[in-house]
């Protein structure tokens, strides 16, 4: 296995406030890696820092052998890192189709139809909604659209921030199923932030625990699930 992404000593700030305190993290090709932690621990910031906003103040981010620490956001996206960020951020006044077209910004036009067909396979619901405005979709549909939009760029690395937030259990199951399917069938590498630590650790190969902007624990998914301190902090009543 070769390394897809590796962070070493990454720090990031919002103004004066330090959000990340020396993060070391690696993601191997073909892996699903999850970040768990309480609200405000820095999970979303970590993902956004990989995308270049906020920029890492110190440390380095190496993606497929290339240092991307100082790259602009749109350049990072063009290197096939796709991010479905917190809050879904669907373009509300664009149709589903236009949202998907925005996701396909960085791919050749010839690939668009192929990717689109793949997305309709994965989320048939989007096909029915193709001309509807993004802002009028239900929460679950918006989440599917957010993931599909990220996937339209044929990413090597997909980052998902809380894809299950606010969704009905059945929809969550469907979305997690889709992530697993993409990982197994296409070998897609996934970095996942999830509030539902139990489901996330079951899905992931490895996990990192983030507390107050620093990584306090790491290990295999099943291994972390079995740890008593994880159980106490993140799993009690969580499943």
């Amino acid at each position: 296995m070769s390394t897809m992404l590796s962070l070493s000593g990454v720090t990031a700030f919002y103004g004066q406030i330090q959000a990340l305190r020396g993060i070391d993290l690696t993601v191997e090709k073909g892996e699903i890696v999850t970040l768990i932690g309480a609200n405000g621990a820095g999970k979303s910031t970590l993902m956004m820092t990989i995308c270049g906003n906020p920029r890492a103040r110190t440390g380095s981010i190496i993606y497929q052998g290339e240092d991307i620490t100082q790259c602009a956001m749109h350049d990072i996206a063009r290197k096939r890192i796709a991010h479905a960020p917190e809050g879904r951020r669907i373009f509300p006044r664009m149709s589903v189709e236009e949202n998907l077209l925005m996701g396909a910004q960085v791919v050749k036009f010839a690939d668009y139809d192929k990717q689109l067909a793949l997305m309709f396979d994965l989320f048939p619901r989007l096909k029915e909604r193709i001309n509807q405005r993004g802002g009028t979709l239900s929460g679950g549909e918006q989440q599917m659209l957010a993931i599909a939009r990220a996937l339209m760029s044929k990413p090597d690395l997909l980052m998902l921030d809380e894809p299950s937030l606010g969704l009905a259990p059945l929809v969550v199951k469907q979305i997690f199923g889709a992530i697993r399917q993409l990982n197994r069938e296409l070998g897609l590498t996934v970095l996942l932030v999830e509030q539902n630590a139990y489901q996330a650790l079951r899905l992931a190969h490895r996990g990192y625990v983030l507390v107050n902007g620093a990584i306090t624990m790491q290990g295999g998914g099943a291994e972390l699930l079995a740890r008593p301190e994880i159980k106490a902090a993140y799993l009690e009543g969580g499943h």
Binding site: N53, A72, M73, H74, A77, P92, R93, G103, Q105, S153
Partner: peptide, 19 residues
Amino acid sequence: RAMRAIEQDAKMAALLGVN
């Protein structure tokens, strides 16, 4: 399309590769 995307959510547009 990129113009409208920036109008609606500039950060998200950049995340998708819009300069």
